[in-house]
Computed example of a mutant assay.
Amino acid sequence: MSTNMQSMALTVPSGGSIESYIQAVSSIPMLSAEEERALAERLHQDGDLMAAKQLIMSHLRFVVHIAKGYSGYGLPQADLIQEGNIGLMKAVKRFDPTVGVRLVSFAVHWVKAEIHEFVLKNWRIVKVATTKAQRKLFFNLRKSKKRLGWFTNDEVNTVAEELGVSRAEVMEMESRMSSQDMAFDLGSDDDESSSHLLSPSQYLEDNSSDLATNFENKQWEDHSANRLQLAIKTLDERSQDIIQSRWLTEDKATLQELANKYQVSAERVRQLENNAMKKLQAAMR
């Protein structure tokens, strides 16, 4: 990927400001299918990097959505998102608008591939010392260990007495020190059907649902809901109340109830409702 395209990626902040980043990318307007196709054509036909930037920016929220699914590996969310953004840029570069699929569906592979690579390089299934006390025991135990292999009962007692800890703590730390990291991927000779041989890589991806389609549908629902709320605000106050009372609440009002409220006939309320619905439909189109 060119340096120019790489420079388009937003730098994801670490620490508390990650929430501000997520809010910022969530506020970036989504693209319609027509807008997306036009931008992709400008990128591929004319090398328009501003078109590439718009495609990338409008899909940053999608990367955040995917990255959140990998939070269980103990890696910084900002780093996961940043790696996913790199995958998004690669997807934008390779996206062919003539195929007939949306970018969000095409980009899943590239976003996940970059995040998977980052997890493979950084994730460790066994954390030897995770607290201050465990770190102290770890370094003291290394000094006390005189030979390879497991301690005998007498050696465990001696070390526990010297360090002022329990036998259980010594044995637990020795177990951690002596264990090996589990291979992330199964070897070529491993039987993937054996439940006890499951490797961490097999937990990375959930194939039970189409994430891209689900995400795109959810984003479209949110987008439509926002457009509906904006359209409702264009109605007069009485029409807004009628639409809200008749369609947007669980305890829906009857025509007669609204007629009594506004001191008009039920038929007049029905007419106002129909007129308001026509205005909303026109605004939504």
Rank of each mutant, 00 (worst) to 15 (best):
A107L: 05
L272V: 06
V108P: 00
V128T: 12
D185G: 00
T254F: 14
Y21C: 07
K145Q: 10
V25G: 11
F62T: 02
G84Y: 05
S26H: 14
A33V: 12
T3D: 13
Q82Y: 13
V128D: 10
W247K: 11
L197V: 03
Y262E: 07
D185S: 01
N214H: 06
N260M: 11
K121H: 09
F184E: 01
L186M: 03
T234C: 03
A253S: 14
A266D: 12
D251M: 07
H116L: 02
G84K: 03
N122S: 10
L80Q: 08
Q263P: 00
F62R: 02
A231L: 10
D46L: 14
M50E: 11
E34M: 12
L10I: 15
H116S: 04
A259L: 07
K121I: 07
S239E: 15
I125Y: 05
D185Q: 03
E35I: 13
A276W: 01
N85L: 15
I18K: 05
R42Y: 09
A91L: 11
R102K: 14
N260H: 12
K121P: 01
P29D: 07
S144Q: 12
V108K: 01
S209C: 08
I243T: 03
D190E: 13
A67R: 01
V156I: 14
S32E: 09
K233P: 01
R42V: 06
L80Y: 02
R61Y: 13
V64H: 02
S58A: 15
S193I: 04
R142F: 09
F62G: 00
A24L: 12
K132D: 13
Q219P: 00
R94Q: 15
Q271T: 14
L141D: 00
R42A: 10
N217V: 08
W110L: 00
V264Q: 04
Q240M: 09
E19W: 10
A212N: 04
M8D: 13
L137S: 02
N275V: 11
S224E: 12
T131W: 15
L137D: 01
K121V: 09
A212I: 06
D236A: 09
L228Y: 07
W220Q: 13
S245N: 07
L198A: 08
E221S: 05
L141N: 02
T131P: 03
V101M: 08
I81V: 15
S166W: 08
S239L: 08
K121T: 11
S265Y: 08
D190I: 05
S32L: 03
V92H: 01
Y70K: 09
M8L: 15
K279V: 11
L230A: 11
F151H: 03
S224A: 12
P200Y: 06
A253M: 09
M277H: 06
H65W: 04
A129G: 07
A38S: 13
